[in-house]
Structure formats: structure tokens, C-alpha cells
């Protein structure tokens, strides 16, 4: 199950430049959680899901997550691809393509994603999804889990890509402008906070600080967690045994600052927890660059649950 697949034919594209961090991702793995495996999966799931939807793929087909651009791909096949997520000024043989759309490519053409001007992560989807190894039900790459091959490392220069439906022909499609997510520059990103079981054990002053402060996304943020800088939160319970985490658990770590757990998070954690958040806001956090202001706002868990159910129904996630 964990052994690299024997590639079955010629490549459909070759990675000329992988950029700072480019990985294969899908919607992550539900199995293996009990053994300590991270969920993994696309950091910005909305952008990932739209990339697959534009190509008529299944919602969880494997695609590329390109972090901060700097990425060049040379095509060896005629095909259609989809580009969504961070605005990296995509060009095909030097001509701007736009994003949140499908792009027709011919053999020999070069797709280039520049260093992203806004956002952090762009998604490239291919017809039928990438042909790649899977483990514990997913093709997602999680570096911390030490899985072999592309399941545990970023793409390298010269990496050959193949996808599963190279002959699929489809009309060009794009996402209507009103559906393309946009961040208003300078405005604080609002992160709903569902106070958790340890919330009452923080001091009144710390609980006030959580909602009053303007936090900022720290440059050490990564696929494991979005780390925030702001006032120190020094109260909270000291527990002996770690407790299970969920996507978006907000934990206060040893440096007294909160973090929001993302896709490559551990499955249990021993630091004090403020609570949980809306899993859908993780998409916006995934695109927030260092320095982005963040505010915690009170949340309605039932409204959040209904919104997740609507998204899963719309994108046909089982």
C-alpha cells in the first residue's frame, strides 16, 4: 500500500521548477487518525474543490498545492487543467491566463506561476486527478508523518506527472466573479471561536483579551498551524495527559500565544485549548500571509454545522 506506484506510461507534464513548496493534496485522510496520522489535505479546501469541479473531476481527486508560486510546468500532452487559489499571475508561454478557470494546453507549452502577490497557495487540477501513490485512503502529502515518496515530501525539479483522464475533452469553464473569494486588504480576518471545555479555566482577563485583541498571522505559520502574535495568554489549565484535537482547535502553546490547528496537525495535544472554530474559515486562514490581522468573534456552532453540510452537499463530498 505504501510502495511507490510503477508509472505506467509516458509523462503528461514535467515539473521544471517546483517553487518553495509544492505538494500533492486531496481532501485528506479519515483513517489512520487513531494511529496518530495527520488529516492532511488541501489547506484551502474551497479553492481545491473548485479546481476539481471546473474540470468535472471527483471532489477528492489528487491535485497540486503550489505554495507562494515560483512554479513552472512543461506539458507533454494536450489537455485541460484548472487553476484556482492564490493569485500567482499564471501565464502560458508568457500569456496571462487568469485564474479560477480551466486552461487548454498543448504539448511543449509552459505554465508559469509567479510569486503570489496575494494569498499563499494556488491549486492546479488535472483531468481525472493526478496518478499518484495513496496511503490510508489518501494521496495527501504530510511531511511530518514520514510516509514514503510523494506522500511525505514536496515535488522536486524534473518530477514527471501523469493524470488519470488525459483524453477527456471539455469546454472551457470559469468561476463567476461573485463566487471568487476576495480578501479586503487591511481588514481583519474574522475567526469564529466556539469556546471549548477548557475556556472556563482561563482568567477573565485572558478571555477578554482573546476577543479584544487584534492578532497577527505569524511568519512561522505552516501546514500544521496558523500561529498568531498578540498579547500573552498566561492562564489556562495545566493538564497531565494530552486530549484529542479537531480541525481548527485553538490552542495556547508554550509561548502563551494562540494557534489554529490546520491540516497537518497532530491528533492529540497537551496545551490549554480556547476552543474550536469554523472549519470553513480555515480556507481563508490558509491564504493569509504573515502580518494579516485576525480577530476572534463569537460563533454559532449550529449555523457553522449547517454551512459545512451545505458545502459538502454542493461539492458532493461523501
Amino acid at each position: 500500500m505504501l510502495n511507490p506506484t510503477d508509472r505506467t506510461g509516458p509523462s503528461h507534464a514535467v515539473v521544471e521548477r517546483p517553487g518553495p513548496y509544492c505538494t500533492v493534496q486531496d481532501l485528506g485522510r479519515r483513517s489512520g487518525r487513531r494511529a496518530g496520522l495527520a488529516p492532511g489535505g488541501a489547506m484551502d479546501q474551497r479553492a481545491f474543490l473548485w479546481a476539481n469541479r471546473l474540470l468535472g473531476n471527483d471532489p477528492g481527486d489528487a491535485a497540486l498545492e503550489v505554495t507562494l508560486g515560483g512554479f513552472v510546468l512543461r506539458f507533454d500532452a494536450e489537455t485541460s487543467i484548472a487553476v484556482t487559489g492564490a493569485d500567482c499571475g499564471a501565464t502560458l508561454d508568457g500569456v496571462g491566463t487568469g485564474a479560477w478557470r480551466t486552461i487548454r494546453v498543448r504539448p511543449g507549452q509552459m505554465l508559469r506561476l509567479s510569486y503570489s502577490a496575494t494569498g499563499m497557495r494556488a491549486y492546479l487540477a488535472f483531468p481525472g486527478g493526478l496518478e499518484t501513490d495513496r496511503a490510508f485512503g489518501s494521496a495527501s502529502s504530510v511531511a511530518r508523518d514520514g510516509l514514503p515518496g510523494l506522500l511525505g515530501r514536496p515535488l522536486l525539479e524534473g518530477e514527471q506527472l501523469r493524470w488519470l483522464a488525459p483524453d477527456r475533452t471539455l469546454p472551457n469553464r470559469h468561476l463567476p466573479a461573485h463566487l471568487v473569494p476576495s480578501a479586503s486588504p487591511g481588514a481583519a480576518l474574522e475567526v469564529p471561536l466556539i469556546p471549548g471545555y477548557e475556556w472556563p479555566e482561563f482568567s477573565d482577563a485572558d478571555r477578554d483579551r482573546v476577543f479584544a485583541a487584534e492578532w497577527t498571522v505569524d511568519p512561522t505559520s505552516d501546514r500544521t498551524a496558523i500561529r498568531l502574535t498578540g498579547p500573552a495568554l498566561t492562564s489556562g489549565p495545566r493538564t497531565l495527559d494530552s486530549t484529542p484535537l479537531v480541525d481548527g482547535t485553538v490552542q495556547v502553546t508554550g509561548d502563551s500565544r494562540p494557534l489554529v490547528f490546520m491540516r497537518d496537525r497532530p491528533t492529540i495535544g497537551g496545551y490549554p485549548k480556547l476552543g474550536g472554530t469554523d472549519p470553513i474559515v480555515l480556507d481563508a486562514l490558509a491564504q493569509s500571509r504573515p502580518g494579516t490581522p485576525v480577530r476572534f468573534v463569537p460563533a454559532d456552532p449550529e449555523a457553522i454545522r449547517l454551512a459545512i453540510a451545505r458545502r459538502e452537499s454542493f461539492f458532493e463530498i461523501l
Binding site: R30, R34, D241, R305
Partner: peptide, 22 residues
Amino acid sequence: VRATIPAFNRLLVEGSPSEWDP
């Protein structure tokens, strides 16, 4: 139920959003 994690004296249960009634 999508995932369960037992740990020490605790159990986490993660569900499907369309079938979850708190």
C-alpha cells in the same frame, strides 16, 4: 461517525455534518 480517537480516559467522536444533531 467519521473518526474516533480514544486517548487516556477520553474519546473523541467526529461526525458527518448532515447527520449531526447535538
